[in-house]
Design a protein around this nucleic acid. Structure first.
Lengths: 338, 338
DNA sequence: TTGTAAGCGTTATCAC
DNA sequence: GTGATAACGCTTACAA
């Protein structure tokens, strides 16, 4: 391995002069500098990241932590993050799994974006207490070293529920996310709020897991108890699609017998038949905002919590108003976007 | 930041004793050891990765490099890789973009898996020459420090072409990947080989890009020149789906007027109507094999290049044999899997 | 069993 | 402008 020591020896100068030249300091003559640079190139010199990180106490690398690599949500999110990071001189690495938690406390990375419920909030607060900088995308956490960039779950779930109610539905199944999911809890809160205002709306909670299989299981229940047209609000698209798949094997028709609405607008939801009604938001913006916030708190700049706005995407999985037999009175039209 | 020095001071021992205790060496008394461990815990000691990496000249981190984060192929691939890495005491990070190329030469990671054509082969060979360990998934490269784990592109493309020919097709469009793509080139080679054997099969090459948009553009050409039923072999599913989308806007019906076959069996291809015929392979296995090979070459163990086998997945996007009017004589049935 | 000390490859503070 | 030199936090001969 070739180090600045080797360059110094070959150039007949001291290592400090080499370091200065390599870092473009103006304390060194152009002549010496270019000679050093030439030798460095000749020797294929590459700086050692560990040594630099050790000395400078920063790695210029940011990490984003995901529960798993398979989510359909992540492409644009990561893309947006990377763009911002690179523009600001940071590198971005994507990590997943318990093992990689160490990256932050061991100072391999300068900060972390968390979209991974396997991180306990307690753990994150501990890191923050030790001075590590964090942006959370999947929970609320109050700490000077932690910033939040959250989806407007409440608006999204409200949009979804009101859309179904406007179609005249009075029986609505709600398929939740896994226990402990912040997004699920937030969305459920909005569901409760909406239904409290609507005396004639009955809603039934079905426990899900944010995976296709959860949607399939929910479908079983719905099929079993089916007597009249119902609506289902799946708290994410993945489950909505699982539910639709299972329903497609029966005589129950989506958008007629069972209206379905999801959340996330993943790419797949464009392709299922009929097109899934869902809640959309800019994943790219979510990512870029998260990265921006993280870099700001690392730089010691003050930041406020941010919110990602959502809209409703229409589709065939909810029957249109013109087809409906009954329509609730006194319901005014609502703007589709919050 | 609390270091072993702080622990040593508080425990009234030397830093080397602390180091030994922390690393579970049996050179130190149980008594001293447990005292040190207790103090370490009390002080919230976390080792510094940079220091350890600098000293040990290894980071126990492996990197996988992707062209972008959005591909649908990657979920299982990364999952498989991570499982193997973690089982072997390595951490896995996912990187993308020119900036992160430095991770390998700067020794931030102990090795790299490459599925990213933005790495020049020359660059990789240079790294390998300097002793860095690499596994390539997207090219052939001969170097003692480089191992290949490649898809059996040739078998896949042959399977696809023969499937179409068996349906009686004599005019086949082939939509390629982007210039310089290894997978595309390999698949094209097989296409040529198959068609050379089949005198009565005409094939037309359309330049694509492995993106949906490429498939849409190819559709334009096909629509424009359409006179009789044809087949299209898109060299990946992404393009096949783009093509189907565009075709769906016309009177041309997939699986009747235009038979379509893709490559990769991405999740989406299950959901398009009709189900896309495609070439499948285990992405998880691809990933785990790549990780295994990388860890082996890092350990100095000898390895051979590996190949990932493929199979054909049937679906509605190619009309079934029973519906066809003409059938080529003398064609024997072929095994679907190679 | 424990301590001393050298060294990993940098950066940065001083002198000169 | 350039050069010693200390320091970053850790591991590991070697000495005691």
């Amino acid at each position: 391995m070739v180090s600045i020591k080797d360059i110094a020896k070959k150039a007949g100068v001291s290592i400090s002069t080499v370091s200065y030249a390599l870092n473009g300091s103006n304390k060194v003559t152009d002549e010496t500098s270019s000679k050093i640079l030439a030798i460095a190139k000749e020797l294929n010199y590459v700086p050692n990241a560990a040594a630099r990180t050790l000395k400078k106490r920063e790695s210029k690398i940011l990490g984003v932590f995901l529960t798993d690599f398979s989510g359909d949500v992540y492409g644009d999110l990561l893309s947006g993050m990377k763009t911002v990071c690179n523009a600001q001189g940071y590198d971005l690495i994507v990590c997943s799994g318990e093992q990689s938690h160490r990256m932050l406390p061991e100072r391999m990375i300068d900060g972390a974006v968390i979209l991974d419920h396997t991180f306990a909030s307690k753990e994150l607060l501990q890191y923050a207490d030790r001075g590590h900088k964090i942006v959370v995308l999947d929970r609320e956490l109050d700490h000077p070293n932690i910033n939040q960039v959250l989806l407007d779950n409440k608006a999204g779930a409200t949009l979804a529920m009101e859309h179904l109610i406007e179609q005249g539905h009075t029986k609505i199944y709600v398929v939740t996310g896994p226990e402990g999911s912040f997004d699920s809890a937030q969305r459920m809160k909005a569901v409760r709020q909406v239904t409290e205002r609507e005396a004639n709306v009955e809603w039934i909670e079905i426990e899900g897991d944010f995976e296709k299989s959860g949607g399939e299981q929910a479908a079983e229940l719905i099929i079993r108890d089916y007597t009249e047209p119902v609506a289902v609000f799946c708290l994410n698209d993945e489950m909505a699609i699982g539910l639709c798949n299972r329903l497609a094997e029966t005589d129950l028709q989506i958008g007629r017998d069972v209206d379905v609405i999801g959340f996330d607008n993943i790419e797949l939801s464009k392709y299922v038949q009929p097109r899934l009604v869902t809640i959309d938001y800019s994943k790219r913006k979510w990512g870029s905002l998260a990265a921006e916030q993280l870099i700001k708190i690392i730089a010691g700049e003050p930041v406020d919590h941010e919110r990602i706005y959502v809209t409703l995407v229409e589709g065939g999985s909810v029957r249109s108003q013109v087809q409906q037999e009954t329509r609730l009175p006194n319901r005014h039209e609502r703007a589709v976007s919050y």
